[in-house]
Write a protein that binds this DNA or RNA. Structure first.
Length: 588
RNA sequence: CGGGGCGUGGCGCAGUUGGUAGCGCGCAUCGUUUGGGACGAUGAGGUCGAAGGUUCAAGUCCUUUCGCCCCGACCA
């Protein structure tokens, strides 16, 4: 491609209001342009890179038995109603009506459609296992898109769906994806780690997220250096420090004026926070066919811990949670700041599992200015539910090895879910087993966002001058610069090399513009092709062309007669360097 | 949805107590220049996000509204 007719200009300065490096560089280098909030066009450079990423994904999916197909972006509401997600998903799903006033949705994902297809395509266990996938547009009306391509509303995702007769088959396909995903990210030059994660709106029994660690990431991960424990904060567990056993003491009311927070209370009474019980009031929302149902929830957790809302919502099977208002708290007979489960009736009380194990905690008295000493459950109040609902954070002890955990930020570049039979059962996607019984297909769902992955490539591979694209993802392998000026010999030589490179099947971006050398070098650095070739009067005097890797400071002069062979060798070396990173990863 | 910020040529920005809109880069033409964002000359390009209001007069003041960014809530 000739740069003189290339669609997409470079920008000397990044547009205002861009923070993430990947956002700035992809914009400045002319890869992407923003159309609206969370809506981006991929210009030719980005499109070529995305195609390469998608082809890597195709190769790895095909290698584990995937069959590529294509499902629609617009779905009738019925399939989403059948699984209940029409009701449980809120404004994040874009809905509209067709001319016949029928409800339609823009696809956020395709479990429903796959399950629907299975109704007709899968009849017998003899057809299983299978793996289908597609690379298709998704739309999720995210409340807050951010950081360029890292979090958008419309995006392209590879989503695959495994179909199995039983859990063992699912487990096998799940593990195959686990390794295939590492291969994909390594081939794209994005170092990723797998962490245990929440199943979220997908439902199901287990899930991993593949995270690229970076401060611009929006997920918080809880990690252990010692044993490798890794989990999304949403589900991260930790070893709770055991409370010293002591005999239960009788309840005793004490005056605690102006002690509305655990901090105040602990200071006022001179007790450590872990000897207190904190009351947190939430409303749990349940989206049902008949409408929204809200349930008041009284949460009790030790004062030295915080509630993890994802864990709490999961324990309650709630679709969402919100904090209760003071009026709602009073309505159940509790007092904001002095709330106590003691003596409350007809209220759902959820207790963190550390609370029953911690004797004689200071708790509210449901009376302004008073707390109880020595509250104990179940002696003084009976929980509706005891669950593990505390949030893990920096310094907490690892559940596996007891060493201190730390937190880091990451971008989710892929995820894998064991769905089980939730969708197949709801939609009626069944098969006949060997024993003649009809059983729901056991499904798995696996996603990778290609645009987000491109953003992570840019985030990982850049320097102060611009992008440094890995050979596997780079839009072009070679960036050929002609420093011709008025020198027709240089121009002719460059034209000849451009043709020869193309004829050799090498992807080359050719800067044939009448720009000054500084501009050409700066643009080449910005756009980030892995190999730069410079033809000039100077290089011709050395009877050759300068070849320089984007990731190296120095170039070499290669003889024009050897050009194709030398470029091919360099491309080979670059591919080999990437291939060396593609290694087996133990499942955990 | 809460908090904060920003909307002025393609990009980055200035615009004072209201007085008829400017700078740098980029773009076009011509000439000079060609190994790290060259130089000169000439030129094109703006309903100042939108609507309403105040005023003799609004980029500037008031009201409303839209868009975008950041933090939080939320979330694959």
């Amino acid at each position: 491609m000739r740069l003189s007719h290339h669609f997409g200009t470079t920008l000397r300065q990044a547009p205002a209001g861009t923070e993430a490096i990947s956002h700035q560089l992809l914009l400045r280098a002319g890869y992407i342009r923003q159309l609206g909030q969370g809506l981006f066009s991929a210009l030719p450079l980005a499109k070529r890179a995305l195609t390469k990423i998608e082809n890597i994904i195709r190769e790895e999916m095909d290698a584990i038995g995937g069959q590529e197909m294509l499902m629609p972006v617009v779905h009738p509401a019925e399939v989403w109603q059948a699984t209940g997600r029409w009701y449980s998903i809120g404004a994040e799903m874009a809905r509209f009506k067709d001319r016949k006033d029928r409800d339609l949705v823009l696809a956020m994902t395709h479990e429903e459609v796959v399950a629907d297809l299975c109704k007709t395509e899968i009849r017998s266990y003899r057809q299983l296992p299978q793996l289908v996938y597609h690379i298709q547009t998704k739309f999720r009306d995210d409340p807050r898109p951010r950081a360029g391509l890292i979090r958008v509303r419309e995006f392209t995702m590879k989503d695959s769906y495994s179909l199995d007769a039983d859990e063992a088959g699912l487990d096998q396909q799940y593990r195959a994806h686990y390794q295939a995903y590492f291969n994909i990210f390594n081939r794209c030059g994005v170092p990723a780690i797998a962490v245990g994660s929440d199943v979220g709106m997908m439902g199901g029994s287990a899930a991993h997220e593949f995270m690229y660690l970076t401060p611009v990431g929006e997920d918080t991960l809880v990690l252990c250096r010692h044993c490798g424990y890794a989990a999304n904060r949403q589900i991260a567990r930790f070893a709770k420090p055991a409370a010293a056993p002591e005999p239960l003491q009788p309840l005793q009311k004490v005056a605690t004026p102006n002690c509305k927070t655990i901090e105040d209370l602990a200071n006022f009474l001179g007790v450590p926070k872990r000897k207190t019980a904190k009351a947190v009031f939430m409303l749990a929302g349940h989206e049902e066919e008949s409408g929204t149902r809200e349930e008041f929830v009284f949460v009790v957790i030790r004062g030295d811990m915080e509630v993890n809302e994802t864990k709490l919502a999961n324990a309650l099977h709630a679709d969402w949670l919100r904090p209760a208002t003071d009026d709602e708290i009073r309505a159940v007979g509790a007092v904001p700041g002095y709330g106590s489960p003691v003596g409350l009736k007809n209220v759902t009380i959820v207790v963190d599992d550390a609370v029953p194990a911690s004797p004689n905690l200071v708790g509210g008295a449901n009376e302004e200015g008073y707390h109880w000493l020595n509250t104990n459950t179940p002696r003084d109040y009976v929980p509706s539910l005891v669950a593990e609902i505390a949030a893990a954070g920096d310094g907490d002890a690892c559940v596996q090895c007891g060493q201190p955990l730390y937190t880091a930020r990451g971008v989710e570049v892929g995820n894998i879910f064991k769905l089980g039979t939730r969708y197949s059962a709801a939609i009626g996607a069944t098969y006949l087993a060997a024993d003649g019984t009809e059983k729901p297909i056991v499904m798995g769902s696996y996603g990778i966002g290609s645009g987000r992955l491109l953003a992570c490539v840019a985030e990982e591979h850049h320097d102060d001058k611009g992008l440094v694209m890995p050979i596997t993802v780079a839009p072009y392998q070679v960036h050929l610069i002609a420093l011709a000026g008025a020198d027709a010999r240089v121009a002719d030589a460059a034209e000849g090399m451009y043709r020869a490179l193309r004829d050799a099947g090498i992807e080359v971006l050719y800067d044939d513009r009448a720009e000054s050398p500084g501009v050409k070098f700066a643009d080449a650095d910005l756009m980030g092709m892995p190999i730069r070739l410079t033809v000039s009067a100077k290089s011709l005097r050395a009877s050759g062309v300068e070849m320089k890797r984007r990731d190296r400071a120095e170039g070499v002069i290669v003889p024009a007669s050897d050009l194709i062979a030398r470029v091919r060798a360099e491309i080979g070396t670059l591919f080999d360097e990437i291939a060396a990173k593609v290694v087996p990863v133990p499942f955990r």
